[in-house]
């Protein structure tokens, strides 16, 4: 890399806003750092882009791959999960995610208890699709009722019928949307980052340790109190762990 490029990159790093071209340049620079096995510089570049609002599945994927190359299993899994949540997909993401999970120290044994019906329905449907469906039926229903009022008597009954049908259809979609909102607001998934995270029976420092988990394990954060969060493992095991030990996806 020439000195001019280095100065340009350094200047870009100091700016608060990047143009898309500058962001692409930084992205390529971080990729080159990765190829030179300068993982710290690569990670810094990706995180800088994320902090400036240049997110997306590709950035998260590259960040996760860099963390995995560094052996930071927890942050690697976190970045891959965020990539997936941002809509990322592909065989490379699946492969690296599988590799990261294969390196995890924890093996969760036992079947998970069946999730409530609402959560299963929510996980089986797309929140955005449900939101658009509800919005469409709701607005269209009212539009047809308005049309019924505008039309002359005699040939406007159909508008009333269609309007009522659409409003009726908006009821289940609205309920499903409400379920999505409830799950989104109350259910949080996180990844363990601490080298050894002790889960206690109560949110107190002197409480008995129920179990320990290690970086890369995906858990569910059920509630928070003080500096503790109640985490639930995929097999239903629960305990109170320090908040700093996990990072929400």
């Amino acid at each position: 890399m020439s000195a001019i490029t280095a100065i340009l990159v350094a200047t870009l790093l100091g700016q608060a806003y990047y143009s898309p071209e500058e962001a692409q340049l930084l992205f390529q620079q971080a990729n080159e750092s990765y190829l030179k096995q300068d993982y710290a510089a690569a990670r810094e570049g990706y995180e800088k882009l994320l902090s400036r609002g240049f997110g997306g599945p590709d950035i998260h994927y590259n960040l996760g791959t860099t963390y995995l190359s560094q052996g930071d299993l927890g942050r690697a899994v976190l970045a891959f999960e965020r990539s997936r949540r941002a809509g990322g997909e592909g065989p490379d993401l699946d492969a690296n995610m599988s590799m990261a999970r294969a390196q995890q120290l924890d093996k969760v044994v036992g079947a998970a208890p069946e999730e409530p019906f609402v959560q299963r329905v929510v996980s089986a449907t797309s929140g955005n699709l449900v939101a658009w469906l509800f919005l469409g039926t709701w607005l269209a229903g009212f539009a047809f009722l308005l049309l019924f009022r505008v039309l002359r008597p005699g040939n406007r009954a159909w508008a009333a019928v269609v309007g009522v049908l659409l409003l009726a259809a908006s009821v289940p979609s609205g309920a499903l949307l409400a379920a999505h909102v409830w799950v989104h607001e109350t259910l949080h998934e996180a990844v363990v980052l601490a080298p050894t995270l002790r889960a206690r029976e109560f949110p107190k420092e002197d409480a008995k340790v129920a179990f320990e988990v290690h970086p890369g394990l995906k858990v569910r954060v059920m509630e928070e109190t003080g500096r503790y969060v109640r985490i639930r493992l995929p097999n239903g095991l629960e305990g109170w762990a320090e908040r700093e030990g996990v990072a929400e996806i």
């Binding site: 692409q24 609002g53 791959t65």
Partner: peptide
């Protein structure tokens, strides 16, 4: 065989963190 760490993505599609529609 398809084992080993997959390489980086060389093209990025920058997106704002997408919020849900609602």
């Amino acid at each position: 065989t398809a084992s080993g760490l997959r390489t980086l993505r060389y093209q990025a599609r920058f997106e704002e963190p997408a919020a849900a529609v609602w």
